[in-house]
Design a protein around this nucleic acid. Structure first.
Lengths: 208, 208
DNA sequence: GGAGTTACGCTACGACCCGTAGCGAAAGCG
DNA sequence: CGCTTTCGCTACGGGTCGTAGCGTAACTCC
């Protein structure tokens, strides 16, 4: 992740296995203890490394949890299901499944809360997690345009704003449904969400 | 809030001024320190009360912050602006203004994160904060139906599902925009959001 | 193979916060 | 005035934090 290491060819290299063990231990601790009761000492013990090793690689609890949670979103992808609605439903269900895991719930929201007072942390969240999802929105948009389901980008600025809006609405809705309303983002709910969204987009295209 | 006190007529009554001072001190500490660095000892000092007084009234940091943040949402209301779109824009802008305050940002998301592992805390959040907003959605819906902008509830179960969906989409979008995307939920953005939503609802009404 | 460099495990440390207990004083009520 | 509850204060053991220091391990370059 923080591979800004131009040519550190000398000395003992850092153990990649330790990285993986630490991140896995962090997720395990998130499941068992939650954010507030998670301690770096405990994570170090679980991972089988010394506490000092942990502090050499991460600045603190926030950064560690961001990286640990970010790995969960690596599996997100956007298979072509033939229509805009089907594409949205597919990726939203994937996102909901990830967010339903306890380590994602407690970890992600906690670091987002902390990021309100830490710009560097927010940037880390954005590059490690958020942008990866936003890329899917852009892909889905281009696909829908090629299918003729959405109009082309005659105004690039407007298109970017629209993509940001859709992203905030979809991701925000899933998060709110899962964490605040505490009800499952299942297929029926996702279908309703998608229907409302696609109808809105179609209406916007027609009105403009 | 926790006024489950049938008839405590005897003994020295609890100071209502202390309650207010503690909650105000909590919000002040949230602004200056954020969630993770907020300590109950510090809040007690700010409020001018003893630490033990704090523990007599709240079980812990989570419950205290929920009550402190909940007061911020008391000012939410839904003035009649003449149309569904205008009503939505008005209440969303209010919600966004509250959520833009630092004590709301850091406090609310932190307790939501903690609530993933604490059912009692989630219930407290729901009754103190969420349900108060949801009531506005219901009111706006009824108003729009009276104006003829939305169809009546021929299926009550479907209507409830729809209200839940709208609530999750709107509240989630504002939260995501403010906290994750870290961009202002200003009038232009709210207008785009409302437009998409109203078009989607109109399309759903037409399609059904 | 030796020298240099970096990572690692381990221990120890002061600082801080937690949550509770005990005490005497204060503020209500009958 | 007695009774009851709250309040401020002090003190406490227990836990976590983040860092420093040390000897050892791993790897590279000469």
């Amino acid at each position: 992740m923080q591979s800004r290491r131009p040519a550190a060819r000398t000395g003992r290299p850092r153990s990649a296995a330790a990285d993986a063990a630490i991140l896995a231990a962090t997720r395990e601790a998130l499941v068992e203890l939650g954010w507030s009761k998670l301690t770096l000492s405990d994570v170090a013990t679980r991972a089988g490394v010394a506490k000092t090793t942990l502090y050499r690689r991460w600045a603190g609890k926030n950064e560690l949890v961001v990286d640990a949670v970010a790995e969960l979103f690596d599996e997100l992808e956007l298979p072509d299901r033939g229509s805009l609605a089907a594409d949205i439903e597919g990726v939203v269900l994937q996102f909901a499944a990830i967010l339903d895991r306890p380590e994602a719930k407690s970890g992600l929201m906690a670091v987002v809360a902390e990021s309100t007072r830490d710009d560097a942390l927010r940037a880390r969240i954005r590059t490690s997690i958020v942008d990866r999802q936003k890329r899917l929105v852009m892909e889905g948009r281009v696909r829908a345009q090629k299918r003729g389901e959405l109009p082309g980008d005659n105004d690039p600025a407007q298109a970017a704003r629209s993509a940001d809006l859709i992203f905030d609405m979809v991701a925000g809705a899933v998060v709110h449904r899962t964490l605040v309303s505490a009800r499952p983002a299942d297929e029926a709910w996702v279908r309703d969400l998608t229907r409302l969204l696609v109808l809105g987009l179609a209406g916007a295209a027609r009105a403009s």
